[in-house]
């Protein structure tokens, strides 16, 4: 690309074009811009130090890398896996540079929100979350060293069951109003902003069930019929197909791609030509919907 083109794109106020750069590429020669993450200055020019997309906020230019570990923000919904049970806390793998921390004080225990945590709770932490368990949580704060502190103090967060995990690059997950989606095909999807996606059978929770002592932390799956398994597998493969073609992932995109691939067998969805066709159809449909 010509030098002027790049500068024009940055200068253009309403330019929606994505500008991809590689390390060492000159982003702009205009000294009015400020140097953000993923850039450095060399002889008055702003140079990219990462492969990624140029992101500009007013005068600040930064590069968002395409493949990176997850950088959390407060309020993000994440899906993670317990890696370690420690003193009053769990360590959670969430595809970030460091494991997240889930404090015993930031989970809901059976017996109500108001319950105080005592020593006996500390001793039986493994009965709540054990190593390997999957959970959904929210980023509550950050520690001094940059590790995320998570919490599950809401009915929607907690242990994950009845399904399987799909992993995609975290940059592909779009921030939306809700990351807990129930698709029309009857499958629950939790789009963790860290790139971990939980695809599971939709299980409605009745209030009396939620009050059962072990309702939050039991490990038993509901009975899942073959057809439901197939739909879960179909949704998982659809998400992977979107990720393979570097398409962003949100609920509408999944629905479009799911419909586009409905004529194919589940195991064929990931075949190169079929996945491309599915993603293209879904993209076209998405753009059409945008225009209306």
């Amino acid at each position: 690309m010509d030098q002027d083109d790049i500068e024009m794109e940055i200068d253009g106020e309403d330019s929606l074009d994505i500008h991809v750069v590689t390390p060492g590429e000159v982003v702009t020669r205009d000294s009015a811009f400020m140097r953000g993450h993923g850039t450095y200055t060399e002889d008055e020019t702003l140079v990219a130090s990462l492969a990624g997309v140029v992101d500009r906020v007013n005068k600040l230019i930064s590069i968002k890398p395409l493949r990176t570990r997850y950088n959390g923000e407060i309020g993000d919904v994440v899906v993670g896996r317990i890696t370690e049970v420690a003193q009053k806390r769990w360590k959670v793998d969430m595809n970030a540079r460091q494991d997240g921390v889930l404090l015993l004080s930031s989970v809901n225990l059976p017996g109500g929100v108001q319950r105080r945590k005592n020593e006996s709770d500390e001793l039986q932490m493994r009965t709540f979350f054990a190593e390997g368990d999957m959970l959904s949580a929210e980023v509550q704060a950050f520690f001094q060293d940059g590790a995320a502190s998570l919490h599950t103090r809401s009915i929607k967060y907690g242990k994950l069951r009845n399904g399987s995990l799909v992993t995609v690059p975290s940059a592909l997950i779009k921030r939306t109003k809700s990351h807990f989606v129930t698709l029309p095909c009857g499958v629950d999807v939790i789009l963790g902003l860290n790139g971990y996606i939980w695809v599971a059978k939709h299980v409605p929770i009745s209030p009396e069930q939620a009050n059962q002592p072990d309702a939050l932390y039991h490990n038993d799956n509901e009975p899942i019929a073959d057809q439901e398994r197939e739909i879960i597998a179909r949704v998982s493969n659809t998400i992977l197909a979107l990720a393979k073609h570097n398409n962003f992932i949100n609920d509408t995109m999944i629905v479009y791609a799911y419909e586009a691939g409905s004529s194919h067998r589940v195991k064929d969805i990931l075949k190169p030509d079929i996945s491309q066709e599915i993603v293209q159809t879904a993209r076209a449909q998405f753009q059409e919907a945008q225009q209306h």
Binding site: M134, K159, N221
Partner: peptide, 14 residues
Amino acid sequence: MISVSERDYITKGV
């Protein structure tokens, strides 16, 4: 690492 419910899901699926 794998959770109890994932193991159950996979085993029954198989």
